[in-house]
Design a protein around this nucleic acid. Structure first.
Lengths: 123, 123
DNA sequence: AGCGTACTTTCCATAATAGTTAATTAGAGG
DNA sequence: CCTCTAATTAACTATTATGGAAAGTACGCT
């Protein structure tokens, strides 16, 4: 099960991390964490042109970090948690490395680390 | 305090996320989570040439995700948690978005979200 | 229909990435 | 000194990313 999805997860992580590897896009995300916004609203704080922001938004959307709606001529953006959760989950894998206390680490993390052959039923 | 370091953190996050936006590099990191390894050992599982792996390692090192030593003609690599913790911390900011339960959320996260003017004493 | 607002797309330039092969550095050891 | 192993650097190519300017699309309004 895990092996088949590994390339899919890999591709998604590639896209997600690449989308996050830009401070403009992270700032857009931070703004959207406070609530939905239009493209013009999102562009306001930056010195970039609207097309540039539009492209950044497209990258975020394609990475699944935001979703978009259509209201009149506006295309409001809203943050989408799924890819963000993917990132958090990915990083959690390594928590034991920087946090020796193993406080919140359970079998899940161990299972992930050497999961090549194992099979699990939950999640 | 926060404002001054924001560009520094931004640059570091740029580098870190960019380094992680590649499945080969993430695989190298996963391997190193199990223990230190030489460049040849790290290269073994891949179909890439050694120079390609060498460059990936350089990217990881520059992003602070790994550290390197010198032992004879070997340059063993070891995982470094600091940048990984940075990523985890960054993602945690948004935990409340995908995890409505707010279980483990404290004032820290709220403070981060609208932290432009606020000042705090703890960490 | 025509105008204004809100975006998006296209085209272009530039720079960064990812990979290759070939050459180079560095140390171990006969 | 010579050679083997380990790894990096150099030089080159191809693809992708980031940005701007200009043109195009979409919708609401009068």
């Amino acid at each position: 099960m895990a092996t088949a999805n590994e390339t899919l997860d890999d591709a998604r992580l590639d896209e997600t991390f690449a989308a996050l590897a830009n401070s403009t896009r992270r700032a857009i995300l931070a703004r959207l964490a406070e609530g939905a916004a239009s493209v013009n609203e999102l562009a306001a704080p930056f010195e970039l042109t609207l097309p540039a922001i539009s492209k950044h938004i497209k990258v975020l959307e394609h990475a699944g970090l935001i979703t978009r709606a259509r209201r009149a001529q506006f295309r409001p953006c809203a943050i989408d948690a799924s890819s963000l959760a993917l990132v958090a989950g990915w990083a959690e894998q390594y928590r034991h490395i920087w946090d020796d206390r193993f406080d919140r680490m359970d079998d899940y993390v161990l299972a992930l680390q050497n999961s090549k052959h194992r099979k699990r039923d939950d999640q």
